[in-house]
Design a protein around this nucleic acid. Structure first.
Lengths: 247, 247
DNA sequence: CGACATGTTGATCATTGTCAAGTCAAGTGG
DNA sequence: CCACTTGACTTGACAATGATCAACATGTCG
């Protein structure tokens, strides 16, 4: 399925950017005019691969994706989860060789934006350049936070932290509310993201269910005890650098 | 100790930026004219703290620094090590609240550059903006690589990987060569960076010494078996995005 | 010389991984 | 519509990597 640019595609991007920064009318209009090519990808498809030298960046319109890296012996590390509005490989605009891969976690709609267009945009509009730069910096902040988890937190704390993080990110673009959000992630992905085995993820989730903290069934997460989750995971949302939330 | 800007201070920055990108003569001259205020800090001093809203970024002229975050119960996670030429809190240019702290690991000379000057620079010179953006993106790549280590590698692999990474970073700015580099890091810092206890770091280092892979004494690291270290740590330098090395 | 941080060693504990088997739900093809 | 396949989830038994605690050695620097 292919289509050419339209305002609708860019709405999600605007919403995301406005969750972490402020845009002027002119900037908003300029972004809406970006040329894109849209494609629908199935579950578990690579969007770009480690070693590629992409000439475009991708914007997620619908579905979830992740960055990951493979190691010897089939071990995998997922480095981030991405949701609609994210441009997960924006870094390829200035880092020409991919040092990791990017894949869908669900059936997804992806818009591709030529680097050429982005480069022109950032040269002509330093304000937009700042916002996009800021977006990649927030990503960096999330990486740091995950490092804290993997280095110094228990499996329980890490899982709880990820729930809080994804809930807030989804809420910021209007995809979650009332402590309820989509959760299309398998326990294997979960483990690969947090540096845990799927078996241990499973046991820890059961413990969280047992304590009445969450419900997780049929790809929907309900956080029943937000405060307790925050406490147990030492969660502090500062690192997400959210400015406002979508309605 | 205080001094005003001079070319000498900025030489280290130029060298660092030229290790990951190319600068035009004009860009180089412009950077050399940046105003800075220089200070010497002792070991273990905070440069900026979690929660601060800095109005300047710091450039390391001499010594080592690290980003870190404290958790309940005195646990600490170090998220990166920084060497001369690095601007470890460049992200504060666009993320106004610090989500972690920055401290010296050795007695260090630090230059402070006002955000105002950096903002003007990036607006007037999109090329310099790109290089600085690129620098923060390389940082992000390093975070991702550390995540892979903490999530999926053994203590041995993680330590070996860090040796390879720091050696190449130092070599790129002319501070290491012949598989020998300064190593002013305690085993406690080491553990806090890799998510290990200092005791386990100690034992693993002894194992590496026993296998004749490294020598580490008196703050100097000598890598005796580079290839074996690369292999054991699954090290691939792509993520450092180095373009050329200093002479 | 003495204090204090760093490094070293041993003993024991525990979180988490691995392996293996089995259940369950959803989808697919005959 | 049912047998079959497939992927995800669950459970148990056992192993291992690395943590913790405690003591002691070794610097190094004022």
């Amino acid at each position: 399925m292919l289509s050419t640019s339209n305002d609708h595609s860019m709405t999600m991007l605007i919403r995301k950017l406005e969750s972490i920064a402020t845009l002027s009318d002119e900037e908003r209009q300029t972004i809406l005019r970006l040329p894109v090519r849209t494609r629908v990808l199935n579950v578990g498809q690579d969007i770009v691969r480690d070693g590629d030298k992409p000439s475009q960046s991708c914007l997620i319109l619908d579905g979830w994706a992740c960055r990951y890296k493979m190691l010897d012996g089939g071990r995998r590390q997922i480095m981030s989860f991405h949701i609609p509005g994210d441009i997960p490989d924006l870094q390829s605009l200035h880092l020409h060789t991919m040092d990791h891969s990017l894949a869908t976690l669900t059936k997804s709609t992806i818009a591709f934006i030529p680097h050429e267009s982005l480069r022109e945009l950032t040269t002509r509009f330093p304000g937009i350049a700042s916002v996009l730069w800021r977006d990649t910096l927030v990503d960096g902040g999330i990486f740091r936070e995950w490092m804290v988890g993997m280095g110094r937190k228990s499996a329980f704390g890490r899982i709880a932290h990820l729930f809080c993080e994804m809930y807030l990110k989804l809420e910021a673009v209007g995809l979650a509310g009332e402590h309820r959000c989509p959760w299309p992630i398998t326990q294997i992905d979960f483990g690969d993201a947090l540096g845990l085995s799927n078996v241990h993820v499973n046991r820890t989730l059961q413990e969280m269910r047992g304590q009445g903290l969450i419900t997780l069934r049929g790809c929907t997460l309900v956080i029943q005890a937000w405060d307790e989750l925050i406490r147990a995971s030492e969660f502090d949302p500062t690192y997400l650098h959210l400015e406002k939330r979508a309605t």
